[in-house]
Design a protein around this nucleic acid. Sequence first.
DNA 1: CGCTGCGTTGAGACTACTCAATATCCGTGG
DNA 2: CCACGGATATTGAGTAGTCTCAACGCAGCG
Lengths: 246, 246
Amino acid sequence: MRQTILIDYLIRQLALRDSSLLPASRDLLLSAFSAVSVVKADHDIVPQGSRPDRCTLIVAGWACRYAELSDGRRQTLAVHVSGDFVDLHSFPLKRMDHAVAALTDCTIQTIPHTRMRYITETDPHLTRVLWLHTLVDAAMLRQWLLSAGQRNALERTAHLLCELFSRLQIVGLASPNRPFDLPLTQADLAAALGISAVHVNRMIAQLRTRELFHWHAREARILDWERLRELAKFDPAYLILTDEPR
Amino acid sequence: MRQTILIDYLIRQLALRDSSLLPASRDLLLSAFSAVSVVKADHDIVPQGSRPDRCTLIVAGWACRYAELSDGRRQTLAVHVSGDFVDLHSFPLKRMDHAVAALTDCTIQTIPHTRMRYITETDPHLTRVLWLHTLVDAAMLRQWLLSAGQRNALERTAHLLCELFSRLQIVGLASPNRPFDLPLTQADLAAALGISAVHVNRMIAQLRTRELFHWHAREARILDWERLRELAKFDPAYLILTDEPR
DNA sequence: CGCTGCGTTGAGACTACTCAATATCCGTGG
DNA sequence: CCACGGATATTGAGTAGTCTCAACGCAGCG
């Protein structure tokens, strides 16, 4: 039962990047997950500076990672949706240099570091796939940094929407020419984009005026994918949508 | 002979994060490195979009990674010094989503992906250490994103200087209260900070006025580490300076 | 039915940008 | 050893993008 949920999202992500992973490897990973638990919106799932002894998977809901300066300024580092490992990197890294928080109520499952270690000792193929998984996260960070440094506020907003839409498609939570559920607030987007919430509002309004994107009451709709992609200069290659042996 | 050079820098980095790595593992890594070769300043070491069949180590010189938008805007994603693997992640990722370029003349050595694969098949401990190595890169990316999103130009400049100084200390190319060699141009810093070269100049001037940092003719000197660190809100924890088993 | 949180809009301020001019450094060739 | 040219650094002036503060609208909920 619990596997079924995981297969729907996590396995879709793993299979996308390496379909040659054996069922035995897949089961080695899946069989160690805890029962599901729930985290309320706006609560930390993993605090900054902690030393987790397990990795957390989002089964349902939206979460984010953020880093905080000593004076309280916060930057969102990633947005996570169903099927995302939010802190797979905590296994090699040990200490969390940032926090993970629930943006909406989240259903999660965890897998102990001891199992991760066992995987690295016994299953090189699965280990490489998990390593890749952490590197796709890093690739997204690079795109966010490219956005923060070089894209203006409008392009940056468009780019985030493109990325989220593409990633939701991977796990089957969105499909072309259909609306999708976007339960974030404009303040959430602002924290992710490194601009003020007021300015996010203006940028969203501009996307609406240009008939690229519409968003009301959590229902988001991409009106012109090609033009939005062009505006954002979005190239999905970094999401590693190709399947090749690792 | 060639190992001697590597030990000086790369091994210092690996040992810092896990001194329990066995000599056999270390040698498994070191023995596969190519002879040194040289890349002239401003030349690409690894082009964006390529599919390298080897990983590259900087033996001497300064390099950077950068991503480029289709209209030519560039963002530097990382600055690399002696002892840094610039594209270790190319092994799991296969395709480069960004480029690596020499900022100064660089001496490099490479290790084939085939050897990397062999390591993952036979040496779980070394594999975890290499995985960690790619994740320290990701931790730096997070700090850069935090800088880009939340730190102003002055703080950001100070933070980069703090990071570079700390990393140079790791490999023994800088030490407290002593000047160090900083062969970058202000334009290089601008590309890394996501601000204009003119503004970098003003920020450096301000650090000089505040008697925090002095830089002339490649010789850089941190005048007041504590105050610079405070200004930058630099917390070196993300560089993983602690040694614990992986 | 009145909070409270979120979204929207306007006005003025500030940070960092661009363009442009000048200064300085460094390597090269005479 | 000096003169030159190109790259780099410095400074000034005006501008653009984004910020902050503030007010108001609207919807959901206790």
